[in-house]
């Protein structure tokens, strides 16, 4: 049966489309406009000029350096959180006794700690161990604050593994380690993917920890770079918009080629 058309909802959806696309249009059109054309026509004028100079100006600056820094920090954060959360989740799901329950409670509680509220002590801790203004100084807190959600995603995936499979491994005389490598990790692949996307997005978009824990250009990340461009480029609007577009490239690629993984990662829900 064909549903009747819903005019009210249709109208609302078109209004919303306008609201969503105006800034998107401004970003794309602004990035390829000349500075003069942009200032004269405003953010939503019909395109009157086309130039890629703005991208050249951004790439000639320190942007690539920021991009590299963000990439290194993102990859390290994802790997560190994964390596630590995998065996931990294995204990939560398969371990016996108070330890596994206690560990799970600890991380449920951790989920409620707002990372913004600990930037002052984090500054103190990271300075005290001599990691201020380094990659590691950003990676460690970012990875730590992705642990609770990582454990949640991984455990919900591992709980789906049936007992028969564990028993079959046990009958073969497999040790805990062998079961982990041969059974748990391969069957956790979907949740591992979700977790990598989720943590990757957070690290990639991270602003606060880098803002408070770094200062030099050598370790500056893209988000902070964009922020400083406001002051650095002043009224060079096309360059700012070009930088915004460049900063979104990895996510646009994910969106184009792995939408399902991206959505699952955004939601932070087990990859089913």
């Amino acid at each position: 049966m064909k549903p009747r058309p819903n005019w009210i909802a249709g109208g609302l959806s078109v209004l919303w489309l306008g609201f969503i696309t105006i800034p998107i249009y401004a970003i794309v059109a602004g990035s390829v406009a000349t500075g003069q054309a942009y200032m004269k026509g405003g953010p939503v004028a019909a395109p009157a000029s086309f130039t890629l100079d703005s991208f050249v100006r951004v790439l000639a600056g320190p942007f690539l350096r920021y991009f590299l820094n963000t990439t290194i920090i993102t990859v390290s954060t994802v790997v560190l959180a994964l390596v630590l959360a995998l065996p931990l989740s294995y204990v939560v799901v398969r371990g016996k006794g108070w330890a596994s329950r206690g560990v799970f409670r600890l991380f449920l509680f951790g989920l409620a700690i707002p990372s913004q509220a600990v930037i002052i002590p984090m500054f103190w801790v990271i300075s005290a161990i001599g990691l201020y203004d380094t990659w590691w100084g950003v990676v460690l807190p970012t990875a730590a604050f992705s642990m609770p959600i990582s454990v949640l995603i991984l455990t919900s995936g591992m709980r789906e593994i049936t007992n028969d499979l564990y028993e079959a491994m046990a009958l073969d005389g497999a040790s805990a380690f062998k079961t982990f490598i041969r059974l748990v990790i391969p069957l956790s692949k979907p949740s591992i993917a979700t977790l990598c996307v989720f943590n990757g997005l957070h690290a990639w978009n991270g602003f606060l920890f880098p803002l408070v824990l770094t200062q030099s250009d050598d370790v500056k990340v893209v988000t902070l770079g964009l922020y400083s461009f406001i002051f650095q480029y002043g009224a060079d609007f096309p360059a700012l918009f070009a930088a915004v577009i460049l900063s979104a490239i990895p996510l646009v690629l994910l969106y184009l080629f792995a939408r399902r993984a991206l959505v699952a990662g955004l939601m932070g829900v087990g990859g089913k």
Binding site: Y90, P141, P148, M169
Partner: peptide, 23 residues
Amino acid sequence: GRPGAHWAVPGALFFALFALVPL
């Protein structure tokens, strides 16, 4: 083939150090 509690130590310790200690 069950993992012992020690499997959880590195992760829990890391989380405690960089999330609970700052608290």
